[in-house]
Design a protein around this nucleic acid. Structure first.
Lengths: 231, 231
DNA sequence: ACAAAAGTGTTGTTACTACACCCATGG
DNA sequence: CCATGGGTGTAGTAACAACACTTTTGT
């Protein structure tokens, strides 16, 4: 933070969103190109200032509404607060970041100054937003392993090959559709819809269609170890 | 939040700490008895206002220094922000809470207006501090299962019976010392010191002494499922 | 010798990965 | 009837809970 003649007594507080979506097989994040200094021309997370009548979650939803249709965000959770005094070069500003997930298949209309960027190939980012995006990705990776959070990246119904592609994009490594199915079925996270879907023009057996049983976050693997006795 | 003649443009931001310690077999939290309204006489988390030259983590360490010796806090991590506008009845105030852990065996000198309270039997708490304490406990429970966070609740060296008592207090259910040892050894979280300790006056085989290999947080069980291929 | 406390051995189970094999469809 | 892609069966493995059993001390 730069020096002030009279230091500010209170920080500005902004809410930011790390919005992820799997797009053509790649995990991408929605970024906004800054038109003004500081960091003019660099890419930043969408968001804006908190006002006194709202919670941080309401605030980020309000700001997001100008970028994407909020109904398209299937899951939203708090990532944390970034408070380094020098994180904003001109003023004292705290940022609370949220992780938002948009299901595959939706193509939200976004303003001209925003664009989706692959998480593994970020452009130059403003402030500390690069590290916030990385924190979001780590959170997502972890929760894919022990919760049903995949529901927020997957469409309403899907084949297992499609779900595998989503998991591969989000995790960054190969996933077996065979075993993914068994893990998610055993945990009661997904269930067959009953219908089938015929795929490529090259033929092949029609794939079964599945859906997530719940579209709210549930921890499916609460005790990796050290379970309570008898559980 | 109460009504203002001129609404405040910026929120006050405070840092709070949920400081846990296992004391005589019970997980307890350090609370401060409020001397002033609002919530006079009720119990609140230690902490205080953020100032512009510090991060939130530095701020909570600074405020904690007036309650406990900061060197006694073996681990500190951010829990989240609480931003409900009505959480403070008189002003607009956000709170960022931290989880702090003090090892067993230390008896920090605390001021007269603070006291340790069993987490399972909290007194009447001010603001939303009761739910913040519960969030801290959930965080601790989860991390005990998949990380080495026990190092921050355990003394420098300990027998397995002592460590089991710590885990039981923190988790709230019975833990087998036999299996706890194997889990933590297999993961490389603890190691034998080599010495032995003779225990009760009633006799019994002397217990081996162990210590945590690292006294920094490490995730020992990163992929509960959906491991990368070959891992 | 006996009680008390700590430590080891062993069994059974579950959850997972890997991979071979079988099934259904289009050309 | 063959290529393509989806699905099932099964074996091997790692991690863990539970519990019986052994070891080492004090009295």
């Amino acid at each position: 933070m730069a020096e002030f003649t009279t230091p500010p007594a209170l920080p500005v507080h902004v809410a930011l969103a790390v919005v992820f979506q799997v797009r053509v097989g790649v995990l991408e994040v929605l970024l906004w190109e800054r038109a003004r200094d500081p960091f003019r021309g660099m890419w930043s997370l969408p968001g804006g200032a908190l006002v006194s009548s709202e919670t941080l979650e309401q605030s980020i939803l309000r700001h997001l509404a100008t970028k994407v249709d909020v109904r398209e965000v299937a899951h939203l959770e708090q990532l944390g607060v970034w408070s380094e005094p020098a994180r904003h070069p001109e003023r004292w500003e705290l940022a609370t970041a949220y992780l938002g997930l948009v299901p595959l298949g939706i193509d939200p209309r976004v303003p001209a100054d925003t664009r989706w960027h692959p998480v593994d190939d970020l452009p130059a980012t403003a402030f500390d937003h690069g590290s916030i995006v990385r924190a979001g990705r780590e959170r997502l990776r972890g929760k894919l392993s022990y919760s049903n959070i995949g529901f927020a990246l997957a469409p309403d119904s899907f084949t297992l090959a499609e779900l595998r592609d989503i998991y591969e994009a989000a995790l960054g490594y190969e996933v077996s559709a065979t075993n993914l199915k068994r893990v998610l079925l055993r945990r009661g996270a997904i269930e067959p819809v009953g219908t089938r879907r015929s795929h490529g023009p090259a033929g092949g057996r029609p794939a079964g269609v599945y859906c997530y049983c719940s579209r709210r976050l549930e921890v499916t693997d609460p005790f990796a170890v050290l379970r309570p006795p008898g559980a």
